[in-house]
């Protein structure tokens, strides 16, 4: 069975006077272990709601979300599901609970009631995985944005999760911080952790194996970055192609066909092929 399974999931935010806002409608898809997924869509399309449905922060209003076969609607599973599906949020300043970094990382494992040595080992290996070992005894408030997000990821890793969800985790970072976080996430994915990256940055989406596009709470596209970027409905979803792909398209319109271009390397290759 797939690691994450959504069966006809709906989610309604209750508004005043009995009215509801349907944030997610009739959503069905599944995710296999180790996939690297980008989740994109315009503001208000339901991306963050979906993320919260995946680790049981929200329980579906209709349908079912299964994590390793466990339904998020059953409270007995909540603890196990939260352990398996970790989330990193947008704002690096809102995600630390302790002053000293190693205490912050230890917070999750401590709540699991693990023995001291096991906690220490998890703190050590998590910080190592995100390249922050030397900061273990420092204070989180003095870090850069990219470093804070890496600490937030380490905090999730200490729970030994199987799925890592990033909810616009790079959007407040400078280019160097963004690169640091993406490198760490890419490496974790290679080690087998499933990654779901919610992003507005289409260059990040191009790095994924699979792109899911939400529009008004529905899944409208699901495929490889190449397939999704070739779709004519992308614009209607509030999305644009990565800048290099737009350039390749405009050149194609002018008669210089370069084929489907996802990233800078492909563009350079395509142009060299044409020019030589």
């Amino acid at each position: 069975m797939a690691q994450l399974v959504l069966k006809d999931v709906g989610y309604v935010y209750a508004l005043k006077e009995g009215a509801g806002l349907k944030a997610i409608r009739g959503l069905s898809f599944s995710v296999e272990k180790g996939e690297n997924i980008a989740l994109v869509g315009m503001n208000g399309s339901g991306k963050s709601t979906l993320a919260k449905l995946l680790n049981g922060l929200f329980v579906p209003s209709s349908g079912e979300v299964l994590v390793d076969g466990m339904s998020t609607a059953d409270e007995k599973n909540t603890f196990e599901i939260r352990k398996r599906v970790g989330m990193v949020f947008q704002n690096p300043d809102n995600q630390t609970v302790a002053t000293i970094i190693e205490d912050d990382i230890a917070f999750g494992p401590e709540n699991l009631g693990l023995p001291g040595e096991e906690i220490a080992e998890r703190v050590r290996s998590s910080l190592e995985a995100v390249g922050m070992s030397e900061f273990a005894s420092r204070t989180a408030s003095k870090l850069s944005g990219g470093q804070k997000q890496r600490v937030a990821i380490a905090g999730v890793l200490a729970m030994k999760p199987e799925v890592l969800i990033l909810d616009e985790a790079t959007s407040m970072l400078d280019p160097v911080g963004r690169r640091e976080v993406l490198d760490v996430v890419g490496r974790l994915n290679k080690e087998g952790i499933t990654v779901i990256n919610i992003t507005h940055n289409m260059e990040e989406a191009a790095l994924a194996q699979r792109v899911l596009v939400l529009r008004k709470g529905k899944l409208v596209l699901d495929g490889s970055p190449k397939e999704v970027f070739a779709s004519s409905v992308l614009g209607a979803c509030g999305l644009t192609l990565p800048p290099v792909a737009q350039l390749a398209n405009r050149l194609s319109e002018r008669g210089f066909e370069l084929g489907a271009i996802l990233d800078e390397n492909e563009l350079v290759e395509g142009i060299c092929r044409r020019l030589k």
């Binding site: 280019p175 160097v176 690169r179 260059e203 290099v244 350039l247 800078e264 563009l267 350079v268 142009i271």
Partner: peptide, 20 residues
């Protein structure tokens, strides 16, 4: 200064490295 050049500049540099 810890920033990245815009993508167009990056592509232009890569093309120049390839002799274009």
């Amino acid at each position: 200064i810890g920033l990245e050049v815009p993508p167009a500049k990056r592509v232009a540099d890569m093309l120049e490295e390839r002799g274009i």
